[in-house]
Amino acid sequence: MRIVCPFCGERELGEFTCLGDAKPVRPAAGASEDEVFDYVYLRDNIAGEMSEHWYHGGGCRAWLKITRNTLTHEICSVEPAAGAGARQAAR
């Protein structure tokens, strides 16, 4: 697996760390116990294309949102995560 960082270009996997599924959204304060439980502990654990957060810690230190196929390791798309790069965030 090599990842094309939108800021740095194509890099080897060792420069990146995977945080995991990008889908779960932190529930608002005051959310029900069910919602919090679901967010913290349950996973879709998709077999196929999955949207994930990755961190380019060994490079530009930007957070990335990557769509990757968990069956084949094919990387379908890479984009900056929300907030990566101040100018990106301002848009």
């Binding site: 740095c8 060792g14 420069e15 060994g58 490079g59 530009c60 230190r61």
Partner: peptide, 9 residues
């Protein structure tokens, strides 16, 4: 490039 050499940024 911002990169890693021998696991070092």
């Amino acid at each position: 490039a911002a990169t890693s050499i021998d696991h070092t940024s």
